[in-house]
Structure formats: C-alpha cells, structure tokens
C-alpha cells in the first residue's frame, strides 16, 4: 500500500493542480458514498475541443491526485477523444497499482466518473 502513497501523490494532494472553478463552463458533480469524496469537474469547450479543465471538491489523496492529473490530461482533447478515455488512462496517469484495492480504485476513478456524467448528461 505504501507504494500507493508515493511522494508525488502526496504532493498533489497538498498542492493540487487545476483546482478551481471555470466560469461559464460545463460541469458535473460526483461523489463516493463510502468515503464522502466529492468532485466537480469543469470543462470549457470551444469548437469541440477542451480549452480548459479544472476541478473542485474534497477527498482522499488518491481522488485528489487523480483529479489533478486527469484535468491536465483531458485539456486540448477533442470531444471524440474524450469519449474514448477510460480506466486505463487514469491508472497510467497515476502510475500506482490498485488492482488489489477495489475501494481505492473507486477513489481513483472518481474524476473519470465525473467526465462520463458530463458527457452523458450535460453535453448533447
């Protein structure tokens, strides 16, 4: 488990990247009832391209680090590319093995859940 708590993960938890709201953007909020983690994802989309991606919320180190990395990853992607983003992308961003930790996996995938919700509910 300590391999999960790598220095960069803790660093991202303490100093998250891309944290904050984007005014006049598309947004989706998701939560994880087991630990109370909550994330709102903000996407500014122009001409079918993600111009900016940010998040707000609170939660454990894994969910927060994942959101920091994930928002950076989806910036500049087209809507078509976004629909192809999946679990493996998130895990390779995080670079930690969660295959034996199903509950922590849910924390890691929370930003992906937010993206899926946004694509499904918010965008036509």
């Amino acid at each position: 488990m300590e391999e999960i708590y790598q220095e960069y993960i803790i660093e991202l938890y303490k100093n998250p990247r891309n944290y904050g709201e984007i005014p006049d953007s598309e947004r989706a909020e998701v939560s994880n009832p087991t630990c109370g983690d909550r994330i709102t994802l903000f996407l500014k989309i122009r001409d079918g391209i993600v111009q900016n991606a940010k998040f707000t919320g609170h939660g454990c180190a894994i969910s927060q680090a994942s959101a920091s990395l994930f928002t950076g990853f989806i910036r500049g992607k087209s809507l078509e590319e976004l629909s192809g983003v999946g679990k493996e992308d998130v895990l390779s961003l995080l670079r930690i093995d969660l295959s034996r930790n199903p509950t922590r996996m849910r924390c890691a995938l929370l930003p992906l859940d937010a993206l899926k919700k946004l694509l499904k509910d918010v965008l036509p």
Partner: peptide, 14 residues
C-alpha cells in the same frame, strides 16, 4: 489535520 480518514486507514492497513 490535513489527512483524509480514508488515507489514514489505508496506510494503517500497510
């Protein structure tokens, strides 16, 4: 302070 309870129990599990 500064540590999410979920992270505490996961690290204790180690």
């Amino acid at each position: 302070e500064g540590v999410h309870p979920h992270d505490i129990s996961a690290m204790l599990s180690e």
